[in-house]
Each structure stands twice: as C-alpha cells, then as structure tokens.
Design a protein around this nucleic acid. Sequence first.
RNA 1: GCGGGCGUGGCGGAGUUAGGCAGACGCAGGGAACUUAAAAUUCCCCGGGUGAAAGCCCGCGUGGGUUCGAGUCCCACCGCCCGCACCA
Length: 843
Amino acid sequence: MTDTSDVQVDAERYDPLALEPAIAQRWHDERTYSLSPRPSTDRDGQGTFYALTMFPYPSGDLHMGHAEIFTIHDALVRHLRMSGRRVLNPIGWDAFGLPAENAARNRGADPKKWTYENIEEQRSTIVRLGYSFDWDTVLRTCDPDYYRWTQWLFLELFDAGLAYRREALVNWDPIDQTVLANEQVVDGRGERSGAVVQRVPRTQWFFRITDYADELLDALEAIDWPDRVKNAQRAWIGRSEGAEISFQTADPGPSGTPEEVVVYTTRPDTVFGATYFVFAPEHPIVTARMAGNADYDAFRDEVSRRSEVERVSTMSADRGKRGVRLDFDMVNPFTGEPIPAYAADYVLMDYGTGAIMAVPIGDQRDFEFATQERLEIRPIIRPTTQDGDLLEELDPATMTEAYVGPGVMINSGEYDGLPWEQAKARIVADVSAKGWGTTRVNYRLRDWLVSRQRSWGPPIPIIHCATCGEIGVPLSDLPVELPGDLDFQVQGSPLEQHPTWKHDVVCPQCGGEDAVRDVDTLDTFVDSSWYFLRYLSPHDDTKAWPKDAANAWLPVDQYTGGVEHAVLHLLYSRFVVKAMRDRGHLAADEPFQALLNQGQVIMDGASMSKSKGNLVVPGEITDTYGADALRGTMLFASAPEDDIDWADVSPTGMHKWLSRVWRLTLAQIEREASDTAADGAEVEALRKAVAVAVIGVTEDYDARKYNTAIAKLMSLTNAILDATRDNSGGETARDALETLLTMLAPICPFITEELWHRLGHADSVHDQPWPTADASLLVEDEVEIVVQVNGKVRGRITMAVGAPQDEVVAAATADCAVAEHLGGEVAKVIHVPDKLVNLVVKA
RNA sequence: GCGGGCGUGGCGGAGUUAGGCAGACGCAGGGAACUUAAAAUUCCCCGGGUGAAAGCCCGCGUGGGUUCGAGUCCCACCGCCCGCACCA
C-alpha cells in the first residue's frame, strides 16, 4: 500500500477489502437470497429453476476447486434471477465420512466437533465470497434430522426388496482392520495405511442397482449431460448381449448324475471351437469338488488376494494367466467331446456365470491361455472380407493372436458354410430348442455395496433377531442415533465395540431379547444420493420430502460439479430417484436434467497440494484483491469446463479492470454533482457500443461462456473511457455505466452493488431486470464488404446496405488495391450480400 | 487394447454451433507521456519473413481431399489428456 497521508488524492481508490465484508455479512444475516415462498409450499413450476451445486465435504477450509464451482454456479444463479426466474439455490454439507474418523483416530478429535468446526469455517468463506445461497435450506448429512431420513430411505429400499444382505468379496485393509470403499483403494493399496488391500469374503448390505441397469442405460439419451460422463456411465453399466449354454461334467460326480454348469458367451457361434473349459477359482462346483485339496486352496487364496494389486499394476495383455488343471472334464454339448476343465484367474466369479467355454481361436484371452498351456486351438471359422469374399484359412501353428473378424463356419457340423452372424442366430435358436440354454443380457454393473465398518455415518436401521431375522427399525424409532461416546482408539469398528449400543435393543417384531443392532453404517454416497430432495424441506420432521414439491421442482435444472463423480454419485442418485419413483414418492425419472462439469484449478501443470508446496487457497486471493477479483479471474481464465492453471492467470489484471470501472463511475458521479454532465461527440458510438455489448453479453451468459462475456464487458468499459476522455458524459454515459454494472453484477456482486448505490439507487443492482438492447441502434445504412480475389482478401469497400451484386462488383473492380490482382478475366463471382464478394479469375 | 476429448502468438484464450477479414479480450514484454523520483494512470507497439513504407509471402500439430473460399467439413497420420481395462 502506498502512503497517502501527505498526498492529496483526487478520488477515492477502489478498495475491495474495505467494502466487501460488510455487504457479504448483510446478505447472509438478512437471508437476502432465501426463496419465498418456501419450495415445499410452491405448487407451480412456472418460471422456477432448481440450480444445484455439488455440496462440499468439510475436510478443512474451502479450496480453489470449491471457489471455481461456486463462482460458475453463482454467476448462473444471479443471472437467472435478474432474468426473472425464481431460483432455488440451496447449500449444505456432505458431512459424514472417513476423514472425520481418521482425525478422531489420529489426533483424538471428536469427529462431530471436527466436522462442525470445518463447516463453520467453510460457511464463513462462502459468505465472504458473496455466493448467493439460500441460507434457510442448509442441511448437514451428519445431523440426526437428516440421517433419520437416510435411514428411512434405506428401509424403503429394504421393503421394496432393493436392499439385501449377502456375502461378497470386499476390500480389506489388514493394517487399519477395516473394509475400504473401492475409491479408497489406490493402486491396490489402502489410501491411508499403504497396505496391500486383500479381497476377503464378508456379509454385506447391497442396493439392487442392477435391477435398473437397462433404464439407467437407456435414459441417458434424454438428459443433457456431457458426452464423456454419459459414456463413462455406459461403460460402467457395460451391457452385453449373448447366450447362456449349459455344459455337463463328463463324470457322474458326487450325486451320481452329471452336474450342469452354465456358461455365458457373446459368441455362441464359436461353440464348436470350445476346446477347454474354465471356472472362476471360487466357483461352487469347483470348491465342492476340490474340497480338502490343500494345493488348490493355496492357489485360490493367492489368486483372490493378489488379483486387485495385479489388476492395476500390470497391463492385462502383458500379464500371464494363472490356472490349474482340475481333475475332471466337461462335455461340449455340440461336439459331444470331453474337454479339459481348468480353474483360472482370468475368469471372474461375479460376472456372467463364473464359468466359460474357452474358444482359443476366437478369443484373445483364451488364445493366450491355450498357448501357455499347450491346449488345442481348433479353427472353426474361415476369415472373409466384410463383403464375404473368402480369405486364407487360419493356421493355429503360426497364429499370434485370436481371430475376431468376419468369416464363415468350418468344422462346425451342420453349421458349416454359414456366415458367422447366421450361425450365431441358428445356434442360439437350437440351444433354446434343445433346452441347453437361452439368450441372455449381462451387465458389468454390480450391485452397490453400501455397508461400511465405520462409525461416522448413518447406522443401518436393522435389528438382527435370532427368531425373526432381519427386521427394520420402526419409523417411530428413527433416527437410530450414533452414540456420543465412541472410542476411536480401538482396533476395528468403534460402533461394533461400543459397550452397550449393539445389545441395548429388543426385536421390534417379537419383542425377543436375543436381538442385536446392525453395527455397520451406510456408505457416504447413500447420504449424497438424495440430498437434493431434502433441500425442498430440510426441517420437516414428518417426512423426507413433500411429494408435490418434488414433483414441481425435479429434475434439477442445472447441476454443477466435478467430473470425478461421473459414475459414482451421479449413477447412485439416478438409481435412488428411479427407485423412489417406483415407490410412489415422486414423479421424476431423473434427478439432474443438465450437468455442467467445471474444470480443475491446478498450479504449474499439477494438481495443488500442501505437500507439493503449490497450494493456493481462496482466502489468500480474497485478502489481497478481494472476492470480486477472485471470481472475475476464475471466470475470465477460460470456459467453465476447462482447467485453470493458476500460474497462468492474473488477479492483478482483474483488479486493474475493476479499478477502472470504479474510477469511471466515480468520475460520472463527480460530473453530475458539479453540473458538468453533458454528452460529448462520441455519444452515438457509445450508444451503439452499449447495444452491441448487451446482445453479445446476453448470448454469452445464456451459453455459460463467462470468459467471453467478460471480454465484451471490458470492451464496453473501453468504449465508455473513449467517450468520456474529454470529461464529457451525461445521460448516455450514465446509461452505459449502469448497463455495464448490471451485466457485471452476477460475476462481481460487490463492486457493482456498491457503485449502484453510489449512483443514487436505493435498491440492489441484483434486483434489476436483465438489460435489453435497442436494436434500432444497430441498423446501418452502410456496410464494409470484404473483397476477395480467388479467395484471398485483397481489399474492403463500403457499400449501401442491400447493394445488388452488379454494383458491388463494379465498386470492387474499381478499387485500385483489388484491380492490381485482377490479372485476367473474372470468370465467376461469389456474392454474400452485405458481407463479402469473391472474384474468381482464370490464370 | 477399447472408448471419449483436445492440438491456434511468449502465455490464458477468441473465432469451430451454420465454411466467408485468424489472433477478440487480457497477461507478460517493449516504448512514450505525466512525475524530482517511484507507484498509479494514460497512449503506442507486440505471429514469422521481407521491406523505408504501402505492400507482398508464409502461418491454426502433419500430409492429403472437398470447395470460388477450410482453424472450421472429410480421410489418414503424429502428439497430448481423460475414462475403462482379463467383463467371456
């Protein structure tokens, strides 16, 4: 700061730090942006807009990523309000989760206190940055009056048969003694402990999201989301069409009759090439037959324990496959031949049926395993071109990879000579006719594992009764509250090891005392899968949300957030909405109609982190240049979807521009106060500049292109400067400034509010209607026409609007600069009226 | 490997929806005015080559194609980024 004590300053300097905090606090304390009437009482969807931003996780103060998402979102929201929409713009916190528990475990913190302190810190930063949230709708997923309804949601799904318990292989961290979510496993190791994660069987709760696989896939067509997110969900769901075919064991087996084993295949046409058979190592038929075989147990244990690490650490193509020959054969139903059975790590128990017919000629994985184990590779297809012309026969002795192209069947009995698509259809039909199998659709998507051996989450509201089994806690007993005296220093789950919590219960159905609470909590993604519904009535203690309000407000019109949730939160929320729709609690098919993925804020090409020493926090920028400059800098840097490298941007430049706006406005007020305000010679140019700016900036706001909107506002600022350079400027200059402030308000809410008041307005700039342009100012009598010769620009001429082609050509050929290039006869003329004329000359 | 996206000045980026003046707007840099000086502010220059200048030539990853005309459309290739990854 310069020392101004002995310098006479003409005008007050722009000092955002002096004016922003008071305005920010007033907006918060007076609930300036609360929606009234409340959404829960609103019955009319007309003119309403539900703007949602992914709620923050309170792991510390706000970081630059939060500032980016909120800044984009707030510009959208403030613009919509000025355009006359009633906007629901809620905020809350995704407040359950692992970091609070880790803070408790490592530092002895109380997770509740730790969480609420972080929330308060984030809240004050959000307020300071001027984000216009509705402070009446605040929710925290760790509040009992929120998770009460998360538990209700669980019980709804339980009643519907969509929540169930079964044994599954889960990620087990042997150091922390706990199950980890997939996203907590990085490169096969526990995110926190660094231990190699094991796959262990455990009985867990699941949501039956696979019931909705088809709808989750098909309904993507109708929502306005970025393609990369839709594609990620399509890949995650992974629909494939094929057939199930039943094979039999070659021997009678324990029961005296051959056992049936069903395989799934997308290439039933290649069944004659199935020269061996592979089971997943955990397949029940194999484990039954290999029981007591210590070598096999060792093999199976090693495969299941190491598979996760290998999956991420090695390219699949480079990795050898591990398998063992089993002591029995299977029979290929089409050839009647016995084929050897194997168990191998490349067949997964939880996809398809956990067993495959192996066709080395036509499947790369089978080809690799067959080569490795010296198994027969039988050609059953002769390659053809796409058009069906025969190519050379395959020679297994010299092949280096499986053949997956088109062809006609050979060595395939009655199907010989058929093109492969026809063979596929015939074989599928015959499989059904003979009772050997059926067509089948399979999904990569697995059911959603929701239970966690954690203690900072909603307890699963189930009581296990020795007599009645799994019984839901009655609604009147919700919430099942977390005890306040958990000991986070214990090994394993504090909730499970609490002295009384688990056993202090009777069966709600039979009243029996031989009952215990479920000691697991729900995944934090369950909390966030429905919070956008709770925003409609966050304090209602009679229901999770009002159905009619949900029908009026859903789907969310615009959802803004990071792409890291492409297949987790965004898929889970879609499932929950569809399930709740089918339970009759709401009408919408989808939670989020439109999605905007903002880019990341990085530093010097790398993601920011404390350990890299490249961390910039919003507070640092706000304390130097103010919130307006931070917001403007972020929006000006690039389109919302693109990453921002903070090393490349300039809050100084933004501050300089805002200072210029400040000075121009104060100069206008000065002129008006001294009665010298009169428009100068540039008045027409300024009026036109305003009209051009209004049209362009409005288009940019509608397209969410805030970077170019700011560029146009800067141009308008320059036009005002030019028009008032001689200290002239009356009505027109005031109008231009007011238009500028109005259109800048969604981006820089503080300086615009302050200057708006200084210009003599008692109301808020944020309550002004969005400006419209006087289009008549843009009607011209003359236009500049670009003259090209053979497509190259050679000159420009000024013509009357609507000038006919012959006049334009005459003027163009008369232009000396153009004439120079007219070496020959004009063979052709391309005339785009009022824009361009291209004279084509023969060489 | 499969799927998706992106390549424009020293830098961030405009322009790509609909083919029609490439480099808007800014940052960084250079010069000037004002000032005792500095800061602040204001003005000028700022893709490469050539030229005193006007201008001319080249230029949007590379190579082709379509077109009167291509950063924009089509084909091939190169590079980078992001998903998924033994899913039968």
